[in-house]
């Protein structure tokens, strides 16, 4: 499993949000993207997911060009910004809808992933009644259900309590596989150092070199 970015630049309304990104992600470890707010972490994840198109450059996933050979990664789960679901549906119903679109997931799989993230599959509360922490957990569940080959998690431990953070760490570490790329963005440096095997520092849309990071 490999994601290769070559000279990827993204310009939005005249501003370069990503500048000349060249990097290769390989399966078998957790990548952490660190940097302050607005440095381009979320944009990087969006561009890998095929949600935004690069202004220049190329992204290849297992050799296939994103936007040309494939329009979106074939197996991906993501949690970007605030997790969004249908407000009038329960957590289970929301995942069930997504699972139907995704295909290959049974009811037992959905219940299992909900329990994994600490949510009750039998909970009849609609999503709009969920607390922030519950929403975050549901977002993680949606990202990891079906064990996709690419998992992008933007600030996964936001609003999660201390016990929950351990659970989430355990889930993420349990997903490491040579055929899987896990990319986490987190503003908490300590958390990043703990979770990620490789940390990629970013600033102003660029991936910093070691020298730049230390400087």
């Amino acid at each position: 499993m490999e994601i290769e970015l070559t000279n990827v630049t993204k310009t939005i309304k005249g501003a370069d949000v990503l500048k000349n990104i060249t990097y290769t992600f390989r399966g078998g470890c957790i990548y952490g993207v660190s940097g302050k707010n607005g440095c381009g972490k979320t944009m990087l994840m969006r561009i890998i997911a095929g949600l935004i198109y690069p202004s220049s450059g190329e992204i290849r996933i297992n050799g296939k060009r994103l936007g040309k050979d494939i329009s979106f990664p074939e197996s991906i789960g993501l949690l970007i910004e605030n997790p969004a679901f249908l407000p009038d549906y329960t957590g289970y119903e929301n995942l069930k809808l997504l699972a139907k679109v995704q295909g290959g997931l049974s009811d037992a799989d959905i219940r299992g992933v909900l329990q994994e993230v600490g949510l009750d599959p039998e909970d009849k509360r609609k999503f709009y009644k969920y607390s922030l922490g519950m929403r975050q957990r549901l977002g993680i569940a949606a990202a990891v259900m079906g064990r996709p080959q690419i998992i992008l998690l933007d600030e996964p431990i936001n609003a999660i309590d201390a016990d929950g953070v351990e659970e989430i760490r355990g889930i993420i570490r349990g997903l490491i596989h040579e055929d899987r790329i896990i990319l986490i963005a987190c503003h908490d440096k300590e958390e990043m150092d703990y979770m990620a095997d490789i940390v990629i520092p970013m600033s102003e849309g660029r991936i910093l070199s070691e020298t730049e990071e230390k400087g």
């Binding site: 949600l51 329009s71 970007i80 997504l98």
Partner: peptide
């Protein structure tokens, strides 16, 4: 609403934009 909330992203990555 789905686009603004980015719920559409969840669908797009599972079945494609078209």
């Amino acid at each position: 609403n789905e686009w603004q909330s980015t719920y559409s992203a969840q669908i797009i990555v599972r079945c494609g934009r078209g």
